[in-house]
Nucleic acid binder design. Sequence first.
DNA 1: GATGAATGAGTGTTCATTCAT
DNA 2: AATGAATGAACACTCATTCAT
Lengths: 230, 230, 230, 230
Amino acid sequence: MNQSTTEENRIKLLTAAKKEFLEKGFLNASLRTICKNAGMTTGAVYFFFKDKEALFSALIKKHADSIYELLCSHITAEKEMLEEEKYSNLEKGKTNISDIMKIYFQHDNEMADDMIVGQKVFDIVYGNYDLTLLLLSKSQGTEYENFIDKLISMSEKHIFLYCSLFCNLLGMKEIKPYVVHWLSHLMINTYISLFLHIKDKNEAIEHLPVLMKSLQAAFFSIFSDKPLFL
Amino acid sequence: MNQSTTEENRIKLLTAAKKEFLEKGFLNASLRTICKNAGMTTGAVYFFFKDKEALFSALIKKHADSIYELLCSHITAEKEMLEEEKYSNLEKGKTNISDIMKIYFQHDNEMADDMIVGQKVFDIVYGNYDLTLLLLSKSQGTEYENFIDKLISMSEKHIFLYCSLFCNLLGMKEIKPYVVHWLSHLMINTYISLFLHIKDKNEAIEHLPVLMKSLQAAFFSIFSDKPLFL
Amino acid sequence: MNQSTTEENRIKLLTAAKKEFLEKGFLNASLRTICKNAGMTTGAVYFFFKDKEALFSALIKKHADSIYELLCSHITAEKEMLEEEKYSNLEKGKTNISDIMKIYFQHDNEMADDMIVGQKVFDIVYGNYDLTLLLLSKSQGTEYENFIDKLISMSEKHIFLYCSLFCNLLGMKEIKPYVVHWLSHLMINTYISLFLHIKDKNEAIEHLPVLMKSLQAAFFSIFSDKPLFL
Amino acid sequence: MNQSTTEENRIKLLTAAKKEFLEKGFLNASLRTICKNAGMTTGAVYFFFKDKEALFSALIKKHADSIYELLCSHITAEKEMLEEEKYSNLEKGKTNISDIMKIYFQHDNEMADDMIVGQKVFDIVYGNYDLTLLLLSKSQGTEYENFIDKLISMSEKHIFLYCSLFCNLLGMKEIKPYVVHWLSHLMINTYISLFLHIKDKNEAIEHLPVLMKSLQAAFFSIFSDKPLFL
DNA sequence: GATGAATGAGTGTTCATTCAT
DNA sequence: AATGAATGAACACTCATTCAT
């Protein structure tokens, strides 16, 4: 018991910090309160952590990194798929969107990739609900305050590749940058909204197919001039 | 001159407050700074306003209300349209989604209702860019911090009516509440994201048709079991 | 009584600050102690002063300025005397130090300039003994921590002019810069040491003639190769 | 290896302390920083030293002592010289200052005593420039903060003897105590100023003859009533 | 011999708010 | 109608020091 006391105190501090940050957000959280709740004195926090922000980061760094990296690897994977040129049989400028969608969903059926990634994300994200909440909603004033924007802009690059490819095949002019951004925004916030509203992971996962299908509809509709698929 | 001085001072205070809140957000804004910039002393603010939050509210109340009410009246209007039962020719449980869409877009062609509302919203929202920014991004810590959620949950009721009607006609079981919420989230955030990224109203409006079509695709795809309109 | 309370409080604060700074020096002084002794709360100091250093400066600025300016004007005056070329009858390179001293002390007898300046300095410096003490001994950590150096380097320029002139007349090579600096150091510290040791102004003034004569001896000996005026 | 490790750690600590004290002065130095730079933990310092001040003292005690003792022994030596009564041929009350100076400088030519002491001082003082700097400029808050005063008041006793003797021979009344103090101040600060401004020992020594001659002029001028050696 | 953890009082500073005038 | 003075609690953070191990 004795030798673990320090680590226990560190954890007490982190636990109290998590609670306080969740309740008040980073900026309004009080180190005093955290220490008091951890049964320690104000100075103690500075033994373990450089400053208030380091305490916050210590809570969520690993978590934030794993979320970020999962998205990175997903995007890298998709990029490779595009480079494999599944769409290479299609004739540039003369293809129509239905042909593209057929290929897209073939692949999707095989891999169900989007949903697999979705599930992985949910494993992590729901694996520590509080930390994710901290990261997404309570990090204003820290280096993580733009975390969502980072996710969006990463996903944006990925979506842009698809848009470029499809526009090229369809003979359309490029999708406007903001629309690409918006699509990315849509996707990332779909996950985030789901997370924030549905506290139970399995229930969230049950929602995924519908949301994905709907997002895909939103996405592909971009490439059609017709009012809507009629 | 004398009787208007007071009103002038009120306005100076509000102007300085707007600047400060925009720069730092509600919580981090300093009343001291506001008063200094308004050329007044700290006490003055308490003559005009009950406290810091009342000052913030005084800035955006009208603006927030008008946005809120516009959405209300839009929803009421749509509700009436539904009650007029444009879809009454369709046979319950035996209609398919294409039929519904035909009617939906007929009406839309006549009215271009969604886009008209969109334009009205933009008139208000871009009419005072700063106040909208305050409301959407700088209101944490005030009664308005959940303003977006309020919009979403109002829009939710509206979307729910459509969903109910369509499901009924299609013989589907009801759309899950969260999916309805999410659709609403999608729509509201589409406006908000557009606003935050595109500072120029006309440019924003140019984006609307694409975004609306895409949102409609997302919406209608909900009612189809098929992977996607193929 | 009521309307003067604020100014009284300001003075209480300054008085308490003076006491605390004198006892502990700027860096080790505690604003809390100052406020407590002034019968005020910690925040009060920030109504009157920007920060701790501004409180210190408020105490001694005028005082420091008047000392500095007195020295400035003295030096300017002496410079003009040199420009009047009292020494113009002497032949460059062929004069000896006794001739120079004769002229120097002629002027000095008329004006007793050095001592008059000395007396003025003492009027100011002893006029508020505590403030001078603050400035000279307790200002580490403030903008005044190098005040003495400023005085020395100003006096240095003045002494340099004399040295240049005399060396020129004597046909000597220039006095080394450090020696000029040291002479300046000598002079300024003579005043400062006197001040710090002799708390009574008149007693201090009684010492001046001896010290001045001795300093002059130190000064003129620089220009002689002989062991000493024998 | 083991038994020297402790000593090595002591030295690491002292080295890091020297650096920190030089940079920030005693009061503003941080034990934390010292320990960190020494690669040790905060507690370690308290094994070797009683407290912060003991650490400082451990650095400079020997150095300060040797400077102090050199001055002591010099003064003792001079006292003996005086007791040998080199000036015993002179008639009390009827001697003039020139006669005294002749003897003084005779002795000085033989021994060049002042300058020899000066060189010894410089060997020590420049032998460890950092420690001397610590002692002279960074010791505020420690028992050494008045070290210079101690030197001055010791040298004072020495100068007092000369003054007494000379006054006696000259038939003058005693030099005032403060003037004696000031002369001592002059001398000690001449060394200190030289040290602080001229980092190179040999260059400093080159300056000594001029400074000494000048100081001697200052000294002997004290015993003359005439305006100055004319 | 030295660590590493923890203390607790201390720092200067900022804040929204109050209130007599 | 508005000032200007003052409050007092709160803030993040630093410090020299202690002590069980």
